[in-house]
Each structure stands twice: as structure tokens, then as C-alpha cells.
Design a protein around this nucleic acid. Structure first.
Lengths: 288, 288
DNA sequence: ACACTCGATAAGCACTCCTGATGAGACGAT
DNA sequence: ATCGTCTCATCAGGAGTGCTTATCGAGTGT
């Protein structure tokens, strides 16, 4: 199972074409054909149907594995290379959209920081592969419980604060006057689905036994303001940290009383912090 | 970063010898030397000091990555191969020690099952690499929260029941008469440390901010009866699921009132269940 | 001082892996 | 139906890789 072969396999599967994959990878079509044949012989299973080119059942399983595998490989290489390379001069921070509270932004130094906003799931990968020196992820969790992060590499995490969670709804909404809301009562409401902006509706549905939490409008992007505007306009409910949900024109943020979850922020990095990264981490309120 | 090179690297690091590693891998010493040289050139960093052979800082990082990486690789291969191979006749179940409640054991069919008890952390790997068809893991979690499992491969998990947690102490112990105990009050007590038998003291310490929960006696093994006997003899406290902690001669099991955690069991498998495995899963009480 | 162990290096050779050319189906247009 | 075209499989050849054997140089213990 040469990573090379794996890489050509995933591109062939993605492009659904041997010749296209060959062009993209800089090989000849012949080489790609031989790669796939070698993989199939090695594993003792046909991975792709030809004409049309599509993964078989076994091929689908391999695809599930291949992504994380190649990612980990990149992460390992980046990690080791980083130790040998000269320390970077700038400092780059990858943050989830809703993790960028005013407090976090205020903690950034005046100059020399590159800030990149990414979907939450991609942040550990970005940190592991060296795209960012420091990651700031967030998510819902039971109070003082650590977040569940995809483990692409051995990463270190530090808690960096928690805050209450609120349900954002249009001011005219019948539930907007309530002092608090229970999530279970909102399963049948219309929700915003914004996986990249930190509103993982699928998680809520899963926590509710797979029922309810049907998406009304799906937003693909990482802008929280857009999200709050959509919620205010009645396109669906949004579950947001207090700091992101307050002071939204035309919307009311009602505290969530049950289940007892908080919006938690965590700092992610590889190895140990040094220099500017350590300073920033302290400023962001990282606690052991 | 050929997995081959990675594999020889980890064995060299483990054996702290090029020649020994060559013998174990069936290569010549020369080949091993060239492998390491190739890796070092590829990554642009020296990974090992020679004489004595020991990993450098960069090498240590690579070692951290290599284990999970090679494991995932094995898991991927096993998963794909399994799809092509004939379905196994027997059914093998890997279970964590404290996950084997009387209810679980009663659910096993009369014949045709291979049962293997493993430390909790190894079960996902065993299932992923095909060593077991079905895994039964357990652990402490907030009520209805899923467990945190090392993700070696894309695995499916199903909740399979929760039960209260109890602190097991000798009947004569001053705290044994209490109706309930708070974990925070027990940080300074003497605890049993049994990582393989499902008593991860390190987790308790981590949850407590790294303080307290000092190990009194460390037990390396997977036998729960031994553990309860040790607790009854006063060698240290043990945190166990209700079903494992009750009816222990000489010991009293006091409910844990805070934090609100439960002992949760989950079924782990790869892909979807079929045949005997599905029947067993239903019997074990798996819920969607 | 000596033999011995261990890792690095050099040379040789088999084998791998790529390219370029050709073959074999499938599909659409005429 | 026939042709042209597109796509993947196969074949043959050559550059390069990766292994082995052989030898060296540097520590190490006797």
C-alpha cells in the first residue's frame, strides 16, 4: 500500500477517469492504469469498475481510509520538517468562525499575525500540516469537558474559555419572549444549517437520536454576521455562543437551559509553544 | 515517506540498533542503514544519533506519528481485504474488562463466539484491523454523551447501555457509610491504578486539573475480580460501574453523586453489521 | 595492542516503475 | 452497419531504484 498508489487511486476515483487523473498527476495514462492494477492485486479486490469508472464497495471503503491516511502522512512529514527548518518569523493563526470573539481578537498582537478563518473540522489538519502555527477551535460541550477533535496527529490542546449558548431567533418569534429554551422543544423548528460557520446541525440531530432539526436554509460559508442576519430574517434558528448572538438587530438571543452545554474554545498546537505563539496563547487565555 | 522506511525506522528506534532491526526485518544491515539515510534525506533532518542509537528531537516526533500511521494503514488494508474475503464463519468479540457485564455475557449465543478481553484503548484497533468482528468498549462519560475513542479508522459506534458509577472501598473505610460521594473529595485518597482493567487514573487526574489521584497500587492486567479484591483489601479506591462493584465481599460500593457521569458501553464495528454480528449486537442492546 | 562490534560506504545486479506504442471495447455520428 | 473516437489494458524497453555482498573506519572491551 504505497501512498503513491493511494494518491493516484483517490484522484482516479475523484475524477472518475484514468486519463484525467494521469494528466493531473503528471503521469501517463499507462502508469495510472498500472498503479490501480498494482493496488488491486495487492489488496486482492477490484477497487474500481471501468466504464464507467466508479469505486466498488471495497473501493468505497478504501476511499474512507485514504483521506485521513494521506492527511496524517502529510502531518507527520510537516511536523518533522518543521523541527529542522528555521523558525518562522510570522505567526499564523487558524480560527473557527464563532471562536473569534471580541476578546480573542483583542488579544491579537498589533502586527505580524496572519489570521485564517476555516471550518472547524479543518483546523486540526491545518495546524498539523503546518499551515497554521496555532489553531483556535470551538464547539459545544458539557461544561469543562474537552472538545471532540478529529485526531490527524498528536496535537496539544488547551482550554481557552467557555461561555453560555443562546438560541437566536427573530424578535417577533413566539418563543423570543421566553426566558430560556430547551433544545428538545426546538427539534421541530426550522433551523439554519451552516456546517462551515460552526453550526453543525447534523450533530444536534445525532444527539437527538437522528430525529428533527431539519435544515431550512443551508449556508455554505464562514461568515457569522451573515448567519445572524439570516436568523434575524426568519430563515431559521441558530445556536450560537452568547458573544456572537447578542446585539443582533431584529433578533433575540434566548439562553439555552437544557441540555447543560457551553460553547467552549480550545487552543490547538503541535508540540510545545515558543516565542510569539506562547505569548498569543497566554493572551487568548489558555489555561493548563 | 514510504511506509517501509517508516517501519524500519520504528524498529531501529525500538531496538536501538541497526543490525538488530535488520535481523528482525529480514534485511541486511546495509539495507537498514540505507533506509534510515533515505528517510533522513527525504525529511531533511537527522532522525537518529548513532553510537548510541537514539532518536533525536525530530525523530521523537516522527515516532509519535509513526505508530498511529502504520496502524491506520493496517486497518485500511484489513478493511478492504475483508470485503473481498469470504465471510468468516465464527464471530469474534473484543471487549473491555468492565464492559463485560452479566447482561452482556448472557446475551452471547451458546456457541461459535470467540471472546477476547483487551485494554480499552486497543479495542478500536482490534476491530479496525479485523482481529475482532465486534468491539465492546466502555468508559465514563456525561449521561448520553458518546465515548471518546481513538480513531484509527472510520468505525461505527452504537450506544449499548449506561449504568451508574460507584466508588468501591473497604467496608471498614470511614467513607463507606456515606450515601454518596463526590469525586473532588477523593482526590487525596489512595487509588488503584489499573489502566488495562478500565480504571484510567490518569484521566481522573487530568479532569481534576492534573492534581491528586495518586496511584497507590498499580495493577497490570485485565481481571476485574482481582481489582475488586484489591480494593476490598484496602490497597486503594476503585471507580467502577455499578454491576462490577456490587456484591464484593469486604467492600462497599458507594454511588458517585458528582460529577454526573455514567458508565457507558458502546458497540464498535466497521461498516455495517450482518448475520451473527447483527444478532449479537441486538442482544447486547445496541440502540441506533 | 588486539579482536570485535557496529554503522557507513562502494559496487554490482535484479527488479521496479515509468514511458511510448499498440490493442481492445464502448459509444456516438453518419 | 461502419467508421471514428474515446478510454482503459497490455506490451516492450530503458532509466533508475533498492537490495546484496564486500569493505572500511570508528569505537569498545579485553
Amino acid at each position: 500500500m504505497d501512498p503513491h498508489l493511494l494518491r493516484t487511486y483517490v484522484t482516479v476515483a475523484r475524477l472518475a477517469s484514468f486519463s484525467e487523473a494521469a494528466r493531473e498527476l503528471g503521469y501517463t495514462q499507462s502508469a495510472v492504469s498500472q498503479h490501480i492494477a498494482a493496488l488491486e492485486q495487492d489488496l486482492g479486490a477490484t477497487l474500481l469498475t471501468r466504464r464507467p469508472v466508479a469505486p466498488t464497495a471495497a473501493g468505497e471503503r478504501l476511499l474512507d481510509h485514504a483521506g485521513p491516511l494521506l492527511l496524517r502522512l502529510d502531518a507527520a512529514r510537516a511536523d518533522v520538517v518543521r523541527m529542522a527548518a528555521a523558525p518562522a518569523h510570522g505567526l499564523s493563526l487558524a480560527a473557527a468562525p464563532t471562536a473569534l470573539t471580541a476578546r480573542a481578537v483583542a488579544a491579537l498582537p498589533a502586527a505580524g499575525v496572519t489570521l485564517r478563518v476555516l471550518p472547524r473540522e479543518e483546523i486540526p489538519a491545518a495546524v498539523a500540516t503546518g499551515t497554521a502555527d496555532l489553531g483556535l477551535v470551538d464547539g459545544l460541550a458539557a461544561p469543562s469537558d474537552p472538545l471532540r477533535l478529529p485526531d490527524v496527529a498528536p496535537l496539544t490542546t488547551h482550554g481557552a474559555g467557555e461561555e453560555p449558548v443562546r438560541v437566536l431567533l427573530p424578535t417577533g418569534h413566539p418563543l423570543a419572549r421566553r426566558p430560556g429554551l430547551r433544545l428538545g422543544d426546538l427539534a421541530d423548528a426550522r433551523w439554519l444549517d451552516a456546517p462551515d460557520a460552526g453550526l453543525p446541525l447534523a450533530h444536534l440531530r445525532a444527539a437527538n437520536g437522528g430525529h428533527g432539526f431539519r435544515p431550512a436554509l443551508r449556508y455554505e460559508g464562514t461568515d457569522v454576521r451573515t448567519l445572524t442576519t439570516l436568523a434575524a430574517a426568519g430563515h431559521g434558528l441558530a445556536l450560537l455562543p452568547e458573544s456572537a448572538a447578542t446585539a443582533v438587530p431584529g433578533a433575540t438571543a434566548v439562553p439555552l437551559t437544557h441540555p447543560r452545554v457551553v460553547h467552549r474554545m480550545e487552543l490547538v498546537y503541535v508540540g510545545s509553544l515558543a516565542g510569539a505563539a506562547a505569548t498569543l496563547a497566554r493572551a487568548l487565555g489558555a489555561r493548563g
